[in-house]
Structure formats: structure tokens, C-alpha cells
Amino acid sequence: MTALQLKNISFGYRKNEKVLDSVNLSVEKGTVYGFLGANGAGKTTTIRLILGLLKAKDGHIKLFEKDIKDVYPKGLKQVGSLVESPSIYGHLSAKDNLKIWCKNFNIPQSRIFEVLEEVNLSDTKNKKTSNFSTGMKQRLGLAISLLHNPEFLILDEPINGLDPMGIIEFRKIILEQKEKGRTILLSSHILSEVEKMVDRIGILKNGKIVFEGSISDLEKLRQKDVQLKIKVDDVKRTIPLIGERNVNEVDRNYIHCVIANESEIPGLIEKLVSEKIKVFEFSQLSSDLENMFINVANE
């Protein structure tokens, strides 16, 4: 079953502006979907459209196979969300913040303690949230989104501003939610972190989906190309030897490039040496999601 489906979604804040251009994506029930893209790519806009905060100009959004227009706002009962920074009343404690949502959703207040436990905030339930750290606020935001036991979690940049410990803790919580069978859409630009949590990813660039697939699809891409970092004395003479198309980035004496196969490396080194180019460094970069993302986004 598809938890979320976007079909040809286009949107612009002004006439003739296209923040999103025919975006298609689908999130299967019970999976974690990583929604990736650089800042300004249109991730938050997409999430706002899904949640009904904005209205799409073209296309359809289906939530659990029903058009969002037909089920809005009641259909959002199945959705828990955290859009950018968490919405928290700073003058209240974590418990009181959750009490508000308990009353709104008409659910027993015993649920407060369950979600506080889930996000590891039980010890600070009575502390004023204005005194919370960024990580604690994010976790409380997540607790609010979990409170009504939604089937589907939509989290927009939830690890933004978290320190490494905070990121590890947050990841653990997300993985626990995944184990509980929840469907999760997770947007981020911190790619290496998303890689550890998601089943499928979609990469958004300038309002268009430029890659969508499973982690194993990504692995295939990873095996296909070899990323190199070369430091030479003459960049200008080196580039034509590597092939201009293969060069991703030039940073002073460093060239970042891609070759199709590992077996091409000895030949390339020989070619550079025979042309009397001094090679100071020649390293193969690990082709993690971060590099894949840069490649896909640059294509």
C-alpha cells in the first residue's frame, strides 16, 4: 500500500515561478523515505503541500491512496508532523505542551508519559521548555507528532542544528519508530545521516526529482563510478587528459573527478606522468551518499 503519492506536483509562490516542477514520488507503507536536497531545493515546500499548508497549482497528492483534497483536514489524523523547527510553547513544561495536544486530540493523558519515554524526555517533563536545548526541543516536537499514534510521520529537517550526540539519539528514535511499523518521510540535507535510516530516497534539485530509488539502487550507482581526488602542479594541463566531462570540481591544485572503472587508474597515472605533470596526491574517495548526492545533483 502506498502511504503517500505525489503526481506531477507543481507549485510557485508567484506567477510564472516554479519552486516545484512536476514532482513525482511515492512512499510505501512501513518504509522510511529520505527526501534529500540542498537548501532551497523545494523540500519544505513539498512537505507544506502534503500537509495542506499550501495548495498545489497542478497535480495530485494522495494520502493512503485517497486524494488529500477529499480527506483534508480530517485525514491528517493519520499523520504526525514536524515541520522545520518544532512548535512548542516556551512558557510551558514539556508535559503541559503535550497536555494541550492530548486535549486537542481527545486522547488520555497517560499517553503523555508513553511518548516522553519514547523520546527520552521523562526526566525533564516538568522543566520549562524555553530552557530546553535544541536537541530536547526537537525530541519534544517529535513527541508531539507521535502523541496521537499516527501511521505516518513527516519530519522536515529533524536533525538540523543537533550536535553529534543529538543526531545519534534522534536516529535511534527514528529507527525505533520504523520498527514499530510507522511510515516515515524524512527530509534532510545531512545526507550521511539519512543514509543510515532510510529504505528509499528521493533527491530533489531545483524543484525536480533527479533521483528516486532504493538504497540498493544507490549502491549500484556507487559501484558504477569511481571518485578521484588528484593534486597536481598544473591543473589546466591535467583537465584535458582526464576529460573535461569527468571533472566535477576544481579547487586550487585539486581536481575532483569521476572515472567509469577502477581499472582506468593505472593508465591515468601513467598518462599524467608521461606528460610530466607532477602528481602530489592521488586518492580514491569513498563513494558514500554524500558524494552520490553531489554527483546526482550536478548532473
Partner: peptide, 19 residues
């Protein structure tokens, strides 16, 4: 002002109650 200051509108308006 409590609502504006706490940046709460978006959370309220993505809840299933209707604006």
C-alpha cells in the same frame, strides 16, 4: 502573541481540526 511567538500556527494547521 503566544501562538506567534511559539511558532505554533503550522502545527495547529496540520492537525485534523480545520482552521
Amino acid at each position: 502573541f503566544i501562538e506567534h511567538h511559539s511558532n505554533i500556527w503550522k502545527q495547529q494547521y496540520v492537525s485534523p481540526f480545520g482552521r
